[in-house]
C-alpha cells in the first residue's frame, strides 16, 4: 500500500473516536441548549428555543452567577497559590541528590491519587470532632479546635482551595523542575561569576528563562481549576449552601438532580468558551516549541 493512502488510514480510527467521544457531544450539547426547554414550562419539549436557556441563566438564576463567582475566585486563588508554592518547591528540589531526589519521587504519590479520594481525605482531616487538623492544631492553639471548618462558608472554601493546592502542587513542581533543568547551567554560573547574588541570579537569569514553562503551567492549571468537580463533590458537595458550588458542580446539579438537561447544556457552553481561549493559548505554546 502506498504511504499517502496508508497515512490517512492510520489516523482514521483515532479521529473517529475523538469525534464520537468529544466533538459530537460538544456539538450535541450546543443543540440541546437551544432545543430542550425547562421541565417546569408547559409543552415540553419544544423545537427551537432560541436563547431562552441562556437568558434564563443570565437573567433569572442567581445560583448561576454565584457559581461563576465561586469558580472565578477559586481559579484565581488556586492558580496563583499553586504556581507560587510549586515554583518555590521546584527551586528547593531542583539541585537533586539523595534527599531531594527522594522527595521528588514522593511527589508522584499525591498526583496518582484520585481527586475524589483527595476530597474525602480532606473532609476527614477537617472533621470538627476527630479530624487530624483538630487533633494537631487544637493542642497547640485550642481555639482552632472549636472551629467547624466545613460548616462555615468561607472556611469551607478555604479547605477546598487547600485540597486543590495540595493535589496539584506535586505535578506543577515536577513540571517546573523539568523546566529548571532545561535552563543551561552555565548561564547561571556565568551570572554568579559576573557578581550576581542568589536573588539576582534568580530574578535576572532563572526566572526569565523559565517564562515559557511557567506560561504552560499557568494555562494548564487554569484549565483544570475551571473544571474542578470531583474534589468539591466529595469534600463539600457545593456547600454549605452554595458557598463552594463551582460551575461544573452547578451544571451537574441542574442537569442530573433537577433534570434540566437543556438548561445545564447552555451553562456548560458558557463555560466552554473561556476553555477554548485557554486551549488555543496552550496550543500556541506547544506548537511554538517545534
Amino acid at each position: 500500500m502506498r504511504d499517502n493512502k496508508l497515512k490517512y488510514i492510520l489516523v482514521l480510527p483515532a479521529i473517529i473516536v475523538v469525534f464520537a467521544t468529544a466533538v459530537w457531544p460538544l456539538i450535541e450539547s450546543l443543540r440541546l441548549s437551544f432545543t430542550v426547554g425547562r421541565l417546569t414550562k408547559p409543552n415540553f419539549p419544544q423545537g427551537y428555543l432560541g436563547w431562552e436557556n441562556y437568558t434564563w441563566a443570565f437573567m433569572e438564576e442567581p445560583a448561576f452567577w454565584n457559581s461563576v463567582e465561586v469558580t472565578v475566585l477559586y481559579t484565581l486563588i488556586t492558580v496563583i497559590l499553586t504556581t507560587l508554592i510549586a515554583l518555590g518547591l521546584a527551586m528547593l528540589l531542583a539541585p537533586g541528590g539523595r534527599l531531594r531526589g527522594g522527595v521528588q519521587t514522593l511527589l508522584i504519590l499525591p498526583f496518582a491519587m484520585s481527586p475524589a479520594l483527595i476530597g474525602v481525605s480532606f473532609r476527614f482531616m477537617f472533621n470538627p470532632e476527630f479530624g487530624l487538623f483538630d487533633a494537631f492544631f487544637g493542642v497547640v492553639i485550642p481555639p482552632l479546635a472549636e472551629i467547624s471548618w466545613l460548616s462555615d462558608p468561607t472556611l469551607a472554601f478555604v479547605v477546598c482551595v487547600m485540597a486543590d493546592v495540595w493535589g496539584w502542587i506535586p505535578f506543577l513542581t515536577l513540571v517546573l523542575i523539568g523546566g529548571l533543568a532545561s535552563i543551561p547551567q552555565d548561564t547561571i554560573e556565568a551570572a554568579q561569576v559576573d557578581g550576581a547574588s542568589s536573588w539576582r541570579v534568580f530574578k535576572d537569569i532563572t526566572l526569565p528563562q523559565l517564562v515559557p514553562v511557567l506560561a504552560v503551567v499557568l494555562i494548564l492549571k487554569a484549565i483544570f481549576s475551571l473544571k474542578t468537580f470531583d474534589q468539591i463533590y466529595m469534600l463539600t458537595n457545593g456547600g454549605p449552601g452554595t458557598a463552594t458550588q463551582t460551575l461544573s458542580h452547578y451544571i451537574y446539579f441542574s442537569g442530573m438532580k433537577y433534570g434540566q438537561i437543556g438548561y445545564s447544556a447552555s451553562v456548560a457552553w458558557v463555560m466552554v468558551i473561556p476553555m477554548i481561549l485557554l486551549t488555543f493559548l496552550y496550543a500556541r505554546y506547544v506548537f511554538q516549541k517545534r
Binding site: 548561564t187 556565568a190 559576573d194
Partner: peptide, 14 residues
Amino acid sequence: DVAMVFQNYGLYPH
C-alpha cells in the same frame, strides 16, 4: 572578582 569565559559561552539568551 574574577571574569570567566565559559566553554559554551554561557550567554544570557533572553
